[in-house]
C-alpha cells in the first residue's frame, strides 16, 4: 500500500478530520488505491509545459472601491451554532 496509517493520520490532522474507529483501515486502503491510480501521471512527459490553473487565459477584472454591503448580521447568524453579543463562539483559544 502506498500510504500507511501514520501518513493517513497526518493528512487527517492537516484536514481537521476525525476518522471514526472503523473508518481508519478502510481509509488507508482506499486512499492508497487513489494515490496509486493518480501515480500514472508520472508517465506523462511535461517538461516545459505551463501548468494550467484556469480553463481560460483571462485576467482578473477589478471592482470599484465602493461599499455596497449593509449590515445583515442577525440574518447571517441564524445559521450559527453559537453566538453571544454578535460574536461567534468557539472553545477558548489559548495563545
Amino acid at each position: 500500500m502506498s500510504l500507511d496509517k501514520n501518513q493517513v493520520q497526518h493528512i487527517a490532522t492537516l484536514a481537521r478530520l476525525r476518522l471514526a474507529e472503523g473508518e481508519s483501515a478502510e481509509t488507508v486502503e482506499k486512499l492508497s488505491r487513489i494515490v496509486d491510480f493518480v501515480d500514472q501521471l508520472s508517465q506523462a512527459a511535461t517538461d516545459d509545459v505551463v501548468p494550467m490553473a484556469h480553463p481560460f487565459n483571462e485576467t482578473q477584472r477589478l471592482r470599484a472601491d465602493e461599499v455596497t454591503e449593509t449590515d445583515d448580521r442577525d440574518h447571517f447568524q441564524e445559521n450559527a451554532p453559537a453566538v453571544s453579543d454578535g460574536l461567534y463562539l468557539v472553545p477558548k483559544v489559548i495563545e
Partner: peptide, 21 residues
Amino acid sequence: KSKIFSAASTAYGAEPNTQAC
C-alpha cells in the same frame, strides 16, 4: 473604503460582525 474581495466597509470600530458580509 471597501474590503479587498468584498464590498463591505473597512471602517474601524463597528459593532462585532456588522461589517462582515
